[in-house]
C-alpha cells in the first residue's frame, strides 16, 4: 500500500505540552514539514519566545534558543549577522512580540534582517494564565480585564498593518489556523517566508491567528467558531506586502 502521509521526521516523538485543542501544535507540525521539505534541518536554529511558543522546542528537532521575553528578533539579529550560513527563524506570541518586544520586532523589520518572524496571535497571554494581550479584542475577557477589554486598555494592535508602514520588509501576510484550508495557506506562506531567507531576500513577517481554548474558557470547537466570527473580522487575512511577487 502506498504511504501518502506520515509525521515529519523533524518532529520528535515527545510530549509538546499544549492544552487540548490548542493550535500551537498545528504550527509546530507545519513548520517541521516546511523545514523537512526544504532540507534545512541541520542548519536551522529556532529562536523561540517566552510563553507557550517556547514549548515547540520539545518537539522540533533542530537547534534552538529560547530568547528573553520579547527579544527573539534581537537574538536572531545577533545570530544571523554572524552565523550567516545558518537558517534562523523567530517565533513569537502576541504578548512577546506586540507588548514587551515591540521595539525589537519593529527595528528588526526596519533593518530588513534576513530572517522570517512567525507571529502567533491568539489574543491572550497563555502561559501566565489568560491576561490581556495587546491583541485582545474589545469585549474579550481576560484575567486582567474581567468584564472584557474596553478602549481604556487600548484597541487590538494590528501588527501586519503596522509593519507594513516600514520600507524594508519584503513579505508580510496574515493567515489563520481555524480550518484545513487556512492551515494549508499558512503553510504555503511560511514556506515562502523561509525561502525568502534562503534566497537572501530579507525580512518576512507571517502573522498566524490562533486560539486558546483554555484561557478563552471555550471548547476547542467553540474557539474555532469564535475565531471565524470575531478574530478574523478584526484582523483581516491576506498579503500585506510581497516585494518578491513584483520581482517574479
Amino acid at each position: 500500500m502506498e504511504k501518502i502521509y506520515s509525521r515529519s521526521d523533524v518532529l520528535l516523538d515527545a510530549n509538546m505540552g499544549y492544552c487540548p485543542g490548542c493550535l500551537h501544535g498545528v504550527i509546530a507540525k507545519i513548520v517541521a514539514e516546511v523545514i523537512e521539505e526544504l532540507g534545512i534541518r541541520d542548519d536551522t536554529i529556532a529562536v523561540l519566545p517566552i510563553g507557550c511558543g517556547a514549548l515547540i522546542s520539545s518537539v522540533l528537532d533542530t537547534d534552538a534558543i529560547i530568547a528573553l521575553h520579547g527579544r527573539a528578533p534581537a537574538v536572531a539579529t545577533g545570530l544571523k549577522r554572524t552565523a550567516t550560513e545558518k537558517f534562523i527563524f523567530a517565533y513569537q506570541g502576541d504578548g512577546d512580540l506586540a507588548s514587551i518586544g515591540l521595539a525589537e520586532i519593529m527595528h528588526a523589520a526596519n533593518r530588513g534582517e534576513n530572517f522570517p518572524v512567525l507571529f502567533v496571535n491568539n489574543g491572550i497571554f497563555g502561559m501566565t494564565g489568560g491576561q490581556m494581550a495587546p491583541t485582545t479584542l474589545i469585549g474579550q475577557k481576560a484575567t486582567t480585564a474581567k468584564s472584557g477589554r474596553t478602549p481604556l486598555e487600548g484597541y487590538p494592535m494590528h501588527m501586519c498593518e503596522i509593519i507594513s508602514t516600514l520600507k524594508a520588509p519584503v513579505y508580510i501576510e496574515r493567515c489563520s489556523l481555524d480550518s484545513p484550508q487556512h492551515i494549508l495557506a499558512a503553510k504555503k506562506a511560511i514556506k515562502k517566508a523561509f525561502m525568502n531567507e534562503i534566497e537572501g531576500k530579507g525580512f518576512s513577517f507571517i502573522e498566524l491567528l490562533s486560539n486558546c481554548p483554555t484561557n478563552w474558557s471555550m471548547s476547542p470547537q467553540k474557539s474555532l467558531e469564535y475565531m471565524r466570527e470575531h478574530t478574523i473580522a478584526e484582523f483581516p487575512l491576506g498579503v500585506y506586502r510581497d516585494e518578491t511577487a513584483k520581482e517574479d
Binding site: I45, V47, A67, T77, G78, L79, T82, K86, A103, E104
Partner: peptide, 26 residues
C-alpha cells in the same frame, strides 16, 4: 565582523546573546 547599533540597550545585549550562541566572540 558585524556591527549593529541596537535600538536599545536591551536589544543590544540580546543581540550579543544571539552572536554568542552562534559561537562568535561578541
Amino acid at each position: 565582523g558585524a556591527f549593529v547599533q541596537g535600538e536599545s540597550e536591551l536589544a543590544s545585549i540580546n543581540m550579543v546573546i544571539g552572536a554568542a550562541f552562534g559561537g562568535t566572540r561578541a
